[in-house]
Design a protein around this nucleic acid. Structure first.
Length: 833
RNA sequence: GCCGAGGUGGCGGAACCGGUAGACGCGAAGGUCUCAAAAACCUUUGCCCUUGCGGGCGUGAGGGUUCGAGUCCCUCCCUCGGCACCA
C-alpha cells in the first residue's frame, strides 16, 4: 500500500535511484558480445569535454542533453544506441591552469575527471561508462602515437621549419589566441617570431578531396560553409620569373634561377611591374645586391620581431624595401625590380607575387606609396589603354590592352592563351592553390603525448618501434619551459637519451609533444574498441559501428576538430585501415546558451552552476528546461525564472499519473481528446527527429493542458503515451512513472515509442476563418472536408460576416478547404457616380 | 571589407507549401484557498478606441507582387557569429 509520501514527486530520490538501477542493470552499456551482435547499431556521438577544474559547464550540459534526447529517442524506436562519453584532457589549457594553481596536471586531471564523471551521471545521460576514454591515459595515447607513426610511415608527416610566437619572458611558445595586440596575454611582454623545426601532417594533400566530399555528407550547412571557406580553392597558374644576373637588369630564360609566383589572374601578367617576395623567402639573399643588403636585413629583422597575429591583423599602410635585384617579366621580357614586403605571406602560394598594381588593390597601395609604375592591362567598357587608373580595376571584365598580341581579348580568354604560351617555354603552368595549411602538430610543451620519434645523427628521424609504444610522458615536477627555448622534456636527460632503434648508436627522443587536436581527431574510433588492449580499433567492431551515425556538437569546432577528424579518417582509409573515408555521416551544430545578453563566461559573471539547480529542481526539470529555451540548433536565452514552467509541467504530469488520492482511471481516451493525442504523438515524433525540441515540449504541454482542462482527471490511456513521449527529456521520471504504471522493465528496453494512428488523429469538425477582403470577420465551425458551397452558406449565417457583406457585390469567393473562406467584394454600384 | 545567421508582445519563443500572427512558457494583473505568506489552482493579458457588440493598427524601415504577405521580390537599416593583406 502506498503512503502519501510515496505519492509526491521527489526528483532527488527518484533520480539517484534510477541512476543506480541503470548502472546495476547495465541498461546503458554494451558488453563486447552485445557490440558484436547489435542488429540495428546507431552510434550517437557528442563532443567529449575538456575536464576543467570548474566542473561541467551549462554549455556542456546543453549539448549533451540535446544529443542524449536524440539517442534515447532512437533507442525507443528500436535502435541499439551506443552513446559514449570521455575526456579530452591534454593540452595547454590544463597545463596553464596547473601552473597557475601550483598543481601537477597528473594530479589535477584525475580529480577533474572524477568530478565531471559525477556530474555527467547526475544529468542522466545514457552514457556507456564501460567504453569511456581519457586522452591522457597511456593506454589511449599509445594509439595516438601509433596514429602519428602511420602518417610518418606513409610520408604524410614531415619536419620543417615554421614560425611560432615566442614570449621571451615566459620563455615559451604561445598559441595565436594567447597573443593580445602583439603581447603575451599573461605577462604583457612583446611577442617575437621564432623559427623552429616542427612536425607537420600533410593535410594539404587531401585539400581537394576534403572540399569535394563536403557536398556528399549530411552536415549542418553552416559547418560545411565554414569548412569550404577554410580550405578555399583558388584556380590560377604558377608563372616563373627568371632572376637577372647579379648587378644587371638582364635575364635570360633557361638556365637562370627562377622565382615562381602563384596568380589567379595570369591575364594581367603584362601589368606586373615589380615583384614582391615575403621577407622569409629563401631567395631573398640571392637577389639582394650588396648595397641594399643592410636595409634588407634591417627590414627582415623588424618583421621577425612582430608576432604573427599583429603582422596579419593590424591595419597599417604597406611597407617594404627594394632588394636591388631584378627579374624578367616573362611576358613583356623586360626587367622588373624585386622588393620584399610583409604583405606577402610565406605561407601561401609560393611566398612571392607578381605585383600588378593596376588590377590589385594591395599592389596599387604599395606602388603608390613607393612610386612604382602602374600600367593598365584591362580596359572596361568605355575605357582604353590610356584611361588613367585612380584605383585598381579588379574585375575580370573587359578586354586586354597594353598586352602585346593579346590585346583585345577577354580576360578569361587571355588567361588560357597566356598560360598555354608561357607553358610552351616552361615558364608557367595551370595550378590550383588552397588556403588550407599543413597541420603543425608540434607543441613545445609538456602536457601532451610525446611524439614517438628518435633523432639519430646517422639515421635521421626514426620511428619508435610500435612494440615500444607508448612512449610514456614522464612525471616532471618543473614542467615550465626554461631558457633553453625548447620543450620541458629536453631537460629530462635520462628520458630522452636513448639508443637509435635503427643503428643502436646514441640518439635522442623527440621532446615536443603533439597537439591536442590529434588526440580528438580519432577518439570516436576508439570508443567501441576500448575492450581491446592490443589494437587501436578492432576491424569487426569498426565495420559494424562506424561511421558515426549522428554527431552533435558546437560549431566552434567547425574547422579545426571536424576537419582534422575527416582528414585522419580519409588518410586511414587510404592506408587500408578503414572502409570509409567520411567519419561522420550526419553532423548537427547546436546553438549557444546566452544569459543576460552574452555567452556565459566567468569574466562576464553570468555563469550558471548546474549542481544547485539540479538539487532544487532535479535533472529532469533542468534537461527539459534547457531543451525548451529555443530551437536546439539555434541556442537559447537562459532566464532564471523560466525553469518553473517546465518544472510545473513535470509536476502536473506526475500528479496525473500518480493521483494524490484514489486510483488512476481506466477506459479509452475521451473522444474529444483522442485526436489531439494522436496529433501530439505525430508532432513530437517529427520534431524530435528534426531536433526541434522546444516545440516538441510545447506540444506535450498543450496536450496535458487539454487533458486537464476544467480540473478534469485524465485516465490511464490518456497519460501513458505522454509518459513515453517525455522519456527522452525526463528519463528518470519516465522510468518511475512507467514502473508505477505496472511495467517491470526499463522504459528504454524495448521499442516503447508510441505509434500514432492517422485515422484517430483526424478531427471531425474544423474552425474555418471567414474573411471579407482579406480581413478576418469571424470563424465558423464546419465538418472536415466541407465544400465551398457548404462553408459559404455557414459563413453567410455568421452575423458579423453578413454585416460586412451587406450592400456589397461579391466578386469572388476563395476557399481553402478546412482553413479559410475569403469574400472578395466591392461596394454595390447603386449610388456610384 | 567578405561570408553566414537573424530582427515577431514586457521577455524567451511559435506559425505547414503564401491562408485566423503571437502556440507553449516566463513575467504582470485580478481572484480562490490561508490568521498570514509561500505553494497550488482559476481568470485576464499585443497596442489603441469601445460599457458591450465591435472597430482600427500591428512581425526592423520603405516599396512591390497577390483575393490574401511574418512568409515571395526589390531597396535600405540594425544585431549577432565566423573569416580577414590568401595574390
Amino acid at each position: 500500500m502506498s503512503t502519501p509520501a510515496d505519492r509526491t514527486y521527489n526528483p532527488t530520490a527518484i533520480e539517484s535511484e534510477w541512476q543506480a538501477n541503470w548502472e546495476r542493470d547495465g541498461t546503458n552499456s554494451f558488453t563486447l558480445d552485445e557490440l558484436r551482435a547489435a542488429e540495428r547499431p546507431f552510434y550517437n556521438l557528442m563532443m567529449f569535454p575538456y575536464p576543467s577544474a570548474e566542473g561541467l559547464h551549462v554549455g556542456n550540459i546543453y549539448a549533451f542533453t540535446g544529443a542524449d534526447v536524440h539517442g534515447r529517442f532512437k533507442r525507443m524506436q528500436g535502435h541499439d544506441v551506443f552513446e559514449p562519453i570521455g575526456f579530452d584532457a591534454f593540452g595547454i589549457h590544463s597545463e596553464n591552469f596547473a601552473l597557475k594553481a601550483g598543481v601537477h596536471p597528473m594530479d589535477l586531471i584525475p580529480a577533474n575527471v572524477a568530478n565531471f564523471t559525477r556530474q555527467l551521471r547526475r544529468m542522466g545521460g545514457m552514457f556507456d561508462w564501460s567504453h569511456t576514454v581519457d586522452t591522457t591515459a597511456p593506454e589511449y595515447y599509445r594509439w595516438t602515437q601509433w596514429l602519428f607513426l602511420q602518417f610518418f610511415k606513409h610520408g604524410l608527416a614531415e619536419r620543417k621549419e615554421a614560425p611560432v610566437n615566442w614570449c621571451p619572458s615566459d620563455m615559451t611558445v604561445l598559441a595565436n589566441e594567447q597573443v593580445v595586440v602583439g603581447a603575451c596575454e599573461r605577462c604583457g611582454t612583446p611577442v617575437e617570431q621564432r623559427f623552429i623545426r616542427q612536425w607537420f601532417l600533410k593535410i594539404t594533400e587531401y585539400a581537394g578531396r576534403l572540399l569535394d566530399n563536403l557536398s556528399e555528407i549530411d552536415w549542418s550547412d553552416t559547418t560545411r560553409k565554414a569548412q569550404r571557406a577554410w580550405i578555399r580553392r583558388s584556380r590560377g597558374a604558377e608563372i616563373r620569373f627568371p632572376v637577372a644576373a647579379e648587378g644587371t637588369e638582364r635575364a635570360e630564360a633557361g638556365d637562370r634561377t627562377m622565382i615562381p609566383v602563384f596568380t589567379t589572374r595570369p591575364d594581367t601578367v603584362f601589368g606586373a611591374t615589380y615583384m614582391v617576395l615575403a621577407p622569409e623567402h629563401p631567395l631573398v639573399d640571392a637577389v639582394t645586391s650588396d648595397d641594399r643588403r643592410e636595409d634588407v636585413n634591417a627590414y627582415r629583422a623588424r618583421t621577425r620581431a612582430m608576432d604573427l597575429v599583429a603582422r596579419q591583423k593590424i591595419e597599417k599602410h604597406k611597407t617594404g624595401v627594394f632588394t636591388g635585384g631584378y627579374c624578367m617579366n616573362p611576358a613583356t621580357r623586360r626587367p622588373i625590380p624585386v622588393w620584399i614586403a610583409d604583405y606577402v605571406l610565406m605561407g601561401y602560394g609560393t611566398g612571392a607575387i607578381m605585383a600588378v598594381p593596376g588590377h590589385d588593390e594591395r599592389d596599387f597601395d604599395f606602388a603608390t606609396g613607393y612610386g612604382l609604375p602602374i600600367v593598365r592591362v584591362v580596359a572596361a567598357e568605355g575605357e582604353d589603354a590610356d584611361t588613367p587608373l585612380d584605383i585598381a580595376y579588379e574585375y575580370p571584365q573587359g578586354r586586354l590592352v597594353n598586352s602585346g598580341r593579346y590585346d583585345g581579348r577577354s580576360p578569361e580568354d587571355a588567361q588560357r592563351a597566356i598560360v598555354e604560351d608561357l607553358a610552351a617555354d616552361g615558364l608557367a603552368e595551370s595550378q590550383e592553390n588552397f588556403r588550407l595549411h599543413d597541420w603543425c602538430i608540434s607543441r613545445q610543451r609538456y602536457w601532451g603525448p610525446p611524439i614517438p620519434i628518435i633523432h639519430c645523427d646517422d639515421c635521421g628521424p626514426v620511428a619508435v618501434p610500435e612494440e615500444d609504444l607508448p612512449v610514456v610522458l614522464p612525471r616532471v615536477e618543473d614542467f615550465r619551459p626554461d631558457e633553453s627555448g625548447i620543450s620541458p622534456l629536453a631537460r629530462v636527460r635520462d628520458w630522452h637519451e636513448v639508443p637509435c632503434p635503427s643503428c643502436g648508436r646514441d640518439a635522442t627522443r623527440e621532446t615536443d609533444v603533439s597537439d591536442t587536436f590529434l588526440d580528438s581527431a580519432w577518439y570516436f574510433l576508439r570508443y567501441p574498441s576500448t575492450d581491446f588492449g592490443d589494437r587501436p580499433f578492432d576491424p569487426g567492431i569498426t565495420r559494424r559501428w562506424l561511421p558515426v551515425d549522428a554527431y552533435i556538437g558546437g560549431n566552434e569546432h567547425a574547422v579545426l576538430h571536424l576537419l582534422y577528424a575527416r582528414f585522419v579518417a580519409m588518410a586511414l582509409h587510404d592506408m587500408g585501415w578503414l572502409g570509409f573515408e567520411e567519419p561522420f555521416t550526419q553532423f548537427r551544430a547546436h546553438g549557444l546558451i546566452i544569459r543576460e545578453g552574452a555567452k556565459m563566461s566567468k569574466s562576464k559573471g553570468n555563469v550558471i552552476v548546474p549542481d544547485p539547480i539540479i538539487e532544487r529542481y532535479g535533472a529532469d526539470t533542468f534537461r527539459l528546461y534547457l531543451m525548451f529555451l529555443g530551437p536546439f540548433m539555434a541556442g537559447g536565452d537562459y532566464q532564471d525564472k523560466g525553469i518553473s514552467g517546465p518544472h510545473g509541467f513535470l509536476h502536473r504530469l506526475w500528479e496525473s499519473v500518480v493521483p494524490r488520492q484514489g486510483e488512476l482511471g481506466e477506459g479509452p481516451p475521451d473522444p474529444g481528446l483522442e485526436p489531439k493525442l494522436h496529433r501530439t504523438i505525430q508532432r513530437v515524433t517529427e520534431q524530435i527527429a528534426g531536433l526541434r525540441y522546444n516545440t516538441a515540449i510545447a506540444a506535450m504541454m498543450e496536450y496535458l493542458n487539454a487533458a486537464r482542462t476544467g480540473g478534469r482527471t485524465p485516465v490511464r490511456s490518456e497519460v501513458e503515451p505522454l509518459v513515453r513521449l517525455v522519456a527522452p527529456f525526463a528519463p528518470h521520471m519516465a522510468e518511475e512513472l512507467w514502473r508505477r504504471l505496472g511495467n517491470r522493465e526499463s522504459i528504454f528496453e524495448g521499442a516503447n515509442w508510441p505509434a500514432f494512428d492517422p485515422a484517430r488523429a483526424a478531427e471531425l469538425e474544423v474552425r474555418v476563418a471567414v474573411q471579407v477582403n482579406g480581413k478576418v470577420r469571424g470563424t465558423v465551425s464546419a465538418p472536415k472536408g466541407a465544400d465551398r458551397e457548404a462553408v459559404t452558406a455557414l459563413a453567410r449565417g455568421e452575423p458579423n460576416v453578413a454585416r460586412h457583406l451587406d450592400g456589397m457585390d461579391i466578386r469572388r469567393v476563395i476557399h481553402v478547404p478546412d482553413r479559410l473562406l475569403n469574400f472578395v467584394v466591392a461596394r454595390a454600384a447603386v449610388g456610384s457616380l
